[in-house]
Amino acid sequence: AEEIWQQSVIGDYLARFKNDRVKALKAMEMTWNNMEKKEKLMWIKKAAED
């Protein structure tokens, strides 16, 4: 689920960090860890469908 979420937001994060992939990935990891369980559930369901 986290991978699907990352694939959907990586472009936004890379743009925000001027294509600094290391910073973008760290920010994504922090965002994922801070997400509410119900927000993650949507992505977990999406992962299950694929």
Rank of each mutant, 00 (worst) to 15 (best):
A1V: 05
A1S: 05
A1E: 05
E2Y: 11
E2H: 11
E2K: 14
E2F: 15
E3Y: 09
E3L: 11
E3F: 14
I4E: 03
Q6I: 14
Q6W: 07
Q6V: 13
Q7H: 09
Q7K: 13
Q7E: 10
Q7Y: 06
Q7S: 12
S8R: 04
S8M: 09
S8C: 08
S8L: 07
S8H: 15
V9S: 03
I10P: 01
G11T: 11
G11A: 15
D12T: 08
D12E: 13
L14N: 02
L14R: 01
L14C: 06
L14E: 03
L14P: 00
L14S: 02
R16M: 14
R16Y: 12
R16T: 12
F17I: 01
K18R: 12
N19M: 13
N19T: 03
N19K: 04
D20Y: 01
D20W: 01
D20V: 03
D20M: 02
D20L: 02
D20E: 06
R21P: 05
R21S: 09
R21K: 14
V22S: 09
K23P: 03
K23E: 14
A24F: 02
A24D: 00
L25W: 06
L25F: 14
K26H: 14
K26A: 11
A27Q: 06
A27S: 06
A27G: 04
M28S: 02
M28Y: 00
E29D: 08
E29S: 14
E29H: 14
M30Q: 12
M30G: 06
M30N: 11
T31D: 12
T31V: 14
T31G: 06
W32Q: 00
W32R: 00
N33D: 10
N33R: 08
N33F: 07
N33V: 06
N34Y: 07
M35L: 05
M35D: 00
M35T: 01
M35I: 02
E36K: 08
E36P: 15
K37G: 10
K37I: 15
K37H: 15
K37L: 15
K37T: 15
K37P: 15
K37F: 15
K38F: 13
K38G: 13
K38M: 09
K38I: 12
K38V: 12
E39M: 06
K40L: 05
K40P: 00
K40D: 01
L41S: 07
L41N: 06
M42L: 14
W43V: 02
W43L: 03
W43E: 02
I44S: 07
I44C: 05
I44M: 08
I44V: 08
I44A: 09
K45D: 09
K45P: 04
K45H: 11
K45S: 09
K46F: 12
A47G: 04
A47F: 12
A47C: 07
A48C: 05
A48W: 12
A48V: 12
E49R: 05
D50C: 13
D50T: 13
D50F: 15
D50Y: 12
D50M: 15
